[in-house]
């Protein structure tokens, strides 16, 4: 499926989506509030995006936001799409998708651990990699840890 066809489909499912075609794959940006319903639509409706192969977050301190990035593939149609969700940097909250793609459970815990994004209704939102008493979120750009960090 070409990017244009994908765009048509996604506009039907999510009229407010913003598209960006500069990259390798079609980038779609949606609002945090609409994300859960859109995710359900992506997974179960025409596009059948059943394989969430990458879930991550990017910190943009200048514009004061965190960007959630979801990479999807459909194992039936083999089309890729990248979904981005902008979050408030100081109060980052987004609905979990771990009930739709189960791989998201661990990935979201990792993002919570390293970026501090809280995933609402996540079944078991705890730090995954760092210890429970660790302060701060290392992958944020303003993170400084004079004890543990090795400057390169």
């Amino acid at each position: 499926m070409t990017n244009n066809e994908l765009k048509d489909h996604i506009t039907q499912g999510q009229p407010s989506a913003v598209f960006d075609e500069t990259g390798e794959w079609l980038n779609v940006q949606v609002e945090a509030g609409e994300w859960k319903a859109f995710a359900n639509w992506l997974r179960h409706d025409a596009l059948q995006m059943d394989y969430l192969f990458c879930l991550t977050c990017i910190d943009w301190p200048q514009t004061k936001h965190l960007m959630m990035v979801y990479h999807f593939t459909s194992t039936t149609f083999r089309h890729n799409v990248v979904i981005k969700v902008k979050l408030d940097r100081n109060n980052a909250e987004i609905e979990t998708v771990s009930d739709i793609w189960r791989t998201a459970e661990f990935h979201e815990r990792e993002v919570y651990d390293l970026f501090g994004v809280r995933f609402l209704h996540h079944p078991d939102l705890r730090r995954l990699i760092l210890t429970d008493d660790f302060e701060g979120h290392p992958l944020k750009k303003d993170f400084e840890d004079p004890v543990n960090m090795i400057k390169l």
């Binding site: 192969f53 990458c54 991550t56 990017i58 910190d59 990035v69 990479h71 189960r102 791989t103 459970e105 661990f106 990935h107 990792e110 992958l139």
Partner: peptide, 16 residues
């Protein structure tokens, strides 16, 4: 790089 993410296979396999 501004940000690098490695999507490692073991991480997803472990989650199952």
């Amino acid at each position: 790089p501004y940000r690098i993410k490695f999507r490692s296979p073991g991480f997803s396999n472990l989650s199952a």
